[in-house]
């Protein structure tokens, strides 16, 4: 066996060891991050006595579905899940399309008023949302958008749009100039080239942004609460608030079960798009 081959093998072993070390760290981080989530799910499966018990148990001793049943049977669960899905999908779809257009304009064109628009987009996000509740309500009431899902969609767009424009712009700027130039030299037309070259390159950014927009609007509570009065028209976070908004007994188990159910659609959405993020690395390298 030659010395060179031995050295190669030693380097490979070192590399494997290092990777194993990183993996171990990743698992530790995973455990620490996920513990609160685990605690929520575990509590949802525990019996009432076990939940208030003085010594916490790591695993439910007598796992029960009673809390999940109570949550699902609570009035308006399915209606409100449906409402949330409608609000979120419309908000995300419309926002991402509009934001992408604006982001291209900001990142790739120079024009008068560009700076003003950037300042506006950033400035809007600096406004404390609590301050906007009443002025926004008054406007929406004027357009008969109170107690309507469309009013909530419009409201969500006001904070999802600036954010999305802002982040997508960052992703578009991050694309190395050489790639675009290469595409142009290849003879593509102006915007056609953009769409062909930009879209695949920006895909991870689009996905990350839409995941964010999805989660942001799925989890929003304050505006939905103020704008929607009718329980049949509310979103699922508002539905959840009825667990702890009573002056009476708070059913911790059912609250945790309801919370767990509320989180599921986000996880599903992510699973649907995670390939784009998880394999974004390679996608970025292949670059058409």
């Amino acid at each position: 066996m030659s010395a060179a081959a031995g050295a190669v093998r030693a380097r490979r072993r070192r590399k494997r060891l290092r990777r194993a070390g990183w993996n171990a760290i990743a698992l530790a981080v995973f455990a620490a991050m996920v513990f609160p989530v685990y605690w929520m799910v575990a509590t949802a499966f525990k019996s009432d006595d076990e939940i208030v018990g003085l010594t916490p148990t790591w695993l439910p001793e007598h796992p029960t579905l009673a809390h999940f049943r109570a949550a699902v049977e609570k009035p308006f669960f399915w209606t409100d899940v449906k409402n949330s899905l409608i609000v979120v999908s419309v908000t995300v779809a419309v926002s991402i399309v509009l934001a992408f257009l604006a982001a291209v304009a900001l990142a790739k064109y120079r024009f008068t008023g560009r700076k003003l628009f950037v300042v506006l987009v950033i400035g809007i996000q600096m406004l404390p949302q609590t301050a906007l509740i009443i002025p926004l309500y008054v406007v929406l009431a004027r357009y008969r958008q109170v107690n309507a899902l469309s009013g909530v969609v419009l409201t969500y767009m006001t904070f999802v749009l600036p954010f999305s424009v802002w982040t997508l712009r960052g992703f578009i700027i991050g694309i190395p100039k050489e790639l675009e130039e290469a595409a142009m030299v290849d003879g593509s037309t102006r915007l056609g080239a953009f769409v062909k070259i930009l879209l695949p390159l920006v895909a991870p950014g689009l996905v990350a942004t839409s995941v964010f927009a999805f989660i942001q609007s799925w989890n929003e509570y304050i505006f939905a609460r103020v704008l929607l009065n009718d329980q049949a028209k509310q979103t699922v976070t508002v539905w959840l608030s009825y667990f702890y908004g009573t002056s009476r007994h708070i059913d911790w188990g059912a609250l945790m079960a309801g919370s767990t159910l509320t989180a599921i659609p986000v996880v599903i959405f992510f699973l649907l798009v995670q390939r784009r993020i998880a394999f974004g690395l390679t996608a970025g390298a292949v670059r058409g």
Binding site: V29, M40, Y244, A278
Partner: peptide
């Protein structure tokens, strides 16, 4: 990577009001 991202998304998917309760 898949495990860790899944964990991150689980955390992310928790509504703020729920996270506070937990």
């Amino acid at each position: 990577r898949v495990v860790l991202t899944a964990g991150l998304v689980l955390v992310w998917s928790m509504p703020v009001v729920v996270a506070v309760q937990v």
